[in-house]
Nucleic acid binder design. Structure first.
Length: 499
RNA sequence: GCCCCCAUCGUCUAGUGGACCAGGACGCGGCCCUUUCAAGGCCUAAACCGGGGUUCGAAUCCCCGUGGGGGCACCA
């Protein structure tokens, strides 16, 4: 690998659906390698197939990349010297290159109809032969082909794959891959509507855009030798080829697909980038997570920021074997990155989740809540569950819920009543002022500290699991705390009367 | 069916002939801490797919099986 010229890498998605973590990882590696080497990162949209085009897909794609913190130096939205960056706007380029190949004998016109092709395929399948073009038009003379084309007969341009010899395609992670040319089909390069297929468009663009390293899915491995042949036919230099392993479903059975993706609105795990955001994951955590599925730095470090990754990323450390996705590891990384946030930053990230839950968030109060929940949440949406009560006007535990563990309603009522008068006698309700007296009270009553705090926790927060009780009381406010405990005492006494 | 790729704990992985009775992380289990829940600390269980070679020596190299994955479109 000569470093004479700066590296240029591209991410070339096709806007045919929602963008998922698999392509996000490819984009991440592209980005990391470009930044690591001081090269350029190019975004190219491969939208030659109008039938599969999905409106809005490009927008969601760009939104997702931005959310992850990826930026590119050239692309459809930012321009650049090698544009246009949408293949649908580069039509003439592909036509000219395809014709050039025909002129030089590396490709030919094929007039076979889709129907005939389908029939040929069917017969081959019946005879259990590999499905491929039978070569009917390969033998057409140049003059004959010209004549039929001029007569208006529709045609495609096919690559004239050598019938003899072998092709060696070199992948950075796998080394040389040798295949018999006889097993490589005469692939269509230019469709009858004059638009190119990937095998032509990507090769032409990578060359014209000066791409030095191609990172792409290993799904391209089967046609890899074809691509090497096409580039050779043009007389161009091969880029460094790197085929990234695919992601497998969480069970490891089959590659990850929409089939394995749930609806985040139902609390299910999704594979789509923008769903990950909705599920309460931090982009920092997602980046850390996908970076480590197929790449490792050494035998120790696992927590990485984007800056760390740029500093340490190396193509040679990529692994060629497929990886099963593991959401519990994402949860782990998310917890780590949440804890690495400043309280101010955490507050900012939390706001949309409370709003989404229909709660009126007071930013000042949320900022005070943030440190209390920072080490208790693994995803941002969990904050609503554990700290939503701070933003509700009241809580409404039932008498049954208020009864302390292992205590009767009467004992619980007495405990709350005594705690209330204790708290009323305090100049302020803070951990420093209230904790010891409450502990002493539990001791006097012969109950566990946990039992007393448990009842008060339900009384004040309305839930059995909450941030630390006394700290929470400070934020809820003295008057409201006293009121809630008063109501709890009433409820417990009513219940004690029934029992 | 044909072609291609891959193969270390359940999962993600470190490991490029001796430093490996195989290391880390997630998850699991236990202990400590503790007002709940977490976080944190400590500890346990858990793997080199099988068979042949090569070598003084193989997780590491070669071959054959097996298993897994991917691909066989006028999609990308």
């Amino acid at each position: 690998m000569s470093q004479a010229s700066p590296t240029r890498v591209r991410f070339a998605p096709s806007p045919t659906g929602r963008s998922h973590m698999g392509s996000a990882r490819t984009a991440l590696y592209d980005f990391l390698y470009a930044r690591r080497t001081g090269g350029r990162f190019i975004l190219r949209i491969e939208d030659t197939d109008r039938k599969r085009f999905v409106p809005g897909a490009e927008e969601e794609l760009i939104e997702g990349l931005h959310w992850l913190g990826l930026t590119w130096d050239e692309g459809p939205d930012v321009g650049g010297p090698s544009g246009p960056y949408r293949q649908s706007e580069r039509g003439e380029l592909y036509q000219a290159h395809a014709e050039d190949l025909v002129r030089r004998g590396h490709a030919y016109y094929c007039f076979c109809s889709s129907e005939r092709l389908a029939q040929v395929r069917q017969e081959q399948q019946k005879k259990r032969q590999p499905p491929r073009y039978d070569g009917l038009c390969r033998a057409l003379s140049e003059a004959e082909a010209r004549r039929r084309a001029d007569a208006g007969e529709p045609y495609v341009i096919r690559f004239r794959t050598p019938r003899e010899g072998t092709t060696t395609a070199v992948d950075l992670l796998r080394g040389p891959i040798r295949v018999e040319n006889a097993t490589i089909d005469d692939y269509i390069l230019l469709k009858s509507d004059r638009t190119p297929v990937y095998h032509l468009a990507a090769m032409v663009d990578d060359h014209l855009m000066g791409i030095t390293h191609v990172l792409r899915s290993s799904e391209w491995l089967p046609t890899f030798p074809l691509h090497v042949l096409v580039i050779e036919a043009f007389g161009w230099e091969q880029p460094v080829w790197v085929h990234l392993s695919v992601f497998l479903s969480p069970t490891g059975k089959g590659k990850m697909s929409k089939r394995h993706s749930g609806d985040p609105k139902l609390g299910e795990k999704s594979i789509y980038v923008m769903d990950l955001k909705e599920m309460g994951y931090l982009p920092e955590a997602v980046v850390n997570w996908i970076a480590l599925m197929g790449w490792a730095y050494d035998d120790r470090a696992e927590f990485f920021t984007m800056l760390d990754l740029i500093d340490k990323f190396a193509l040679e450390k990529l692994t060629p074997s497929p990886a099963a996705i593991n959401y519990s590891k994402l949860d782990h990384f998310n917890g780590l990155h949440i804890r690495a946030l400043s309280p101010d930053e955490l507050t900012l990230r939390l706001v949309p989740f409370f709003e989404r839950a229909g709660l009126a968030v007071d930013p000042g109060r949320l900022r005070r809540v943030a440190p209390l929940i920072q080490e208790r949440i693994r995803t941002l949406d969990e904050a609503v569950e554990i700290a939503g009560f701070f933003f509700r006007p009241s809580v409404s535990p039932t008498g049954a819920q208020l009864v302390g563990k292992g205590l009767t309603a009467r004992q619980s009522a007495e405990a709350v009543r005594r705690a209330l008068s204790l708290l009323l006698g305090l100049p302020e309700i803070t951990p420093a002022a209230a904790e010891q007296p409450l502990r002493d009270l539990a001791g006097e009553m012969g109950i566990e500290v946990g039992q007393l705090f448990g009842i008060l926790r339900i009384a004040v927060t309305g839930q059995p699991v909450s941030p630390p009780l006394l700290e929470s009381m400070v934020i809820v406010g003295r008057d409201e705390v006293l009121g809630r405990i008063q109501r709890a005492a009433d409820l417990l006494e009513a219940r004690a009367g029934v029992e």
